[in-house]
Amino acid sequence: MIPMTLTVNGQSYQLTVEPRWLLADVLREQLHLTGTHLGCEHGVCGACTVLWDGRPVRSCLTLAVTADGANILTIEGLAAEGILHPVQEAFWQEHALQCGFCTPGFILTAVHLLQENPEPTREEIREALAGNLCRCTGYQHIVNAVQRAAAALSDNHGHAPSGQ
């Protein structure tokens, strides 16, 4: 068992984990943050995406101990004091989710995209989301949502939640 420190959604945790435990399992089973979903456990579907120091990673392929000292944002930490992040709001308004299982991974990937590229084209959005699989929506409404979020973020320029 290895002691480690993990900051998740702004809160610091002192944890003891088995070296083989995956970051996704530590988040879900030790911290009870079950919004991070396990869809494939082989790094393709992206449902388990979390932001590590602001960059998307697959928590199903990440050994938790390697994240010692890291700053992790999960889907639970995105809305600030009950106010939805513009990406969340846009997913809701555009019907960008059906079963919702893949959604946390898509939202966090989109948050990162819009930080890197605040005005993406539809093609650029599709390219950025290529590492996330959705079986319900056919992606079209997800692309609509990311465009809507981009517009909302540029309108709110300066005081949008940063998503870290």
Binding site: R28, H32, G35, L97, F101
Partner: peptide
Amino acid sequence: PRIEDRPLIQGLGRYVSDIQ
């Protein structure tokens, strides 16, 4: 827009694998 979405977009859904 759907009533069911607010929890789902915040990671507050409850799928079988989430039930402890």
